[in-house]
Design a protein around this nucleic acid. Structure first.
Lengths: 140, 140
DNA sequence: CGCCTATTGTTAGTATACAAACGGATTTTG
DNA sequence: CAAAATCCGTTTGTATACTAACAATAGGCG
């Protein structure tokens, strides 16, 4: 028996669920930290740990490809949160570093960022949260 | 003791994990179904179940806001996968319906779409997959 | 030294995704 | 019935995110 229709339930597909959860999370983030986007905050967070980092390396640390991190750094620069300078030892590289304003912004919003994660996971128990993060980590 | 620095580990934040898992999933989708994007396929899937649907209602069914679904429908129209016509009973509404080509495309790729979900979840056991989908569903 | 390869950053094009503002049509409500 | 509220679709602006192609630089190796 061939040609039987295969059921396709969009609402239970992992991609569709991921998209919706991401949308909800982005909404929570925008409400709590209106000054920067999640990706911009991620870049500031990594810079805060790594110190001056080449643009592409920053992209790798934040899971953005070269084209994407360029746009993020450009916008952070326009807002005065990072500054860039050529690496004297490698004329291809551009060092990206947070400005004092960028560092202050990050410090001032770390608590809010943690609350964003908490609010996103609010429907789950503590055990469920750990389970989810563990499973997501496996799918990275 | 105030002013103590709060640790912020980007790599364990739910939003960062969601973004990376989504990226991996989008890559798998593009490799298996190059003709349409995940959102375009989602629209075709819902149309296949719902039949002719108003543009905004299709957006709600696929978790896209009005501006987003408009772009998706426009691109599906350009590719000849859907067609639109005014609702005679409500001059505001635009009915969206799949063309034969759109229906064929959906039917021909349902199996691939299911494999995409499977491949995305490949690192997980059967029980883990159910757990993940259940937890994601709670966060919708 | 010169060639080859890899890396770095840029640009252009395509595709979500949302907010905000708008005009027009419909429905609700007083 | 008329005003208000709601809904529908559109447009503009901003922000990811990827692919592909490209120029410039750096490093390895004979």
């Amino acid at each position: 028996m061939t040609g039987t229709k295969v059921a396709y339930d969009l609402d239970t597909q992992v991609g569709f669920l991921l998209r919706q959860v991401t949308q909800r999370h982005l909404g929570i983030f925008a409400a709590r930290v209106p000054d920067v986007t999640p990706t911009q905050f991620a870049a500031l967070a990594k810079l805060s740990v790594l110190g001056p980092t080449s643009q592409n390396a920053l992209g790798r640390a934040t899971a953005m490809d070269a084209a994407t991190i360029k746009g993020v750094v450009d916008r952070l620069k326009i807002r005065g949160y990072v500054e860039t300078r050529r690496d004297p030892d490698d004329q291809r590289r551009i060092f990206v570093a947070p400005t004092p304003a960028g560092q202050s912004l990050f410090d001032a919003n770390v608590d809010a960022a943690l609350q964003i994660s908490d609010e996103t996971l609010a429907p789950l128990s503590g055990r469920e949260r750990e389970t989810l993060l563990g499973l997501l980590n496996k799918l990275t």
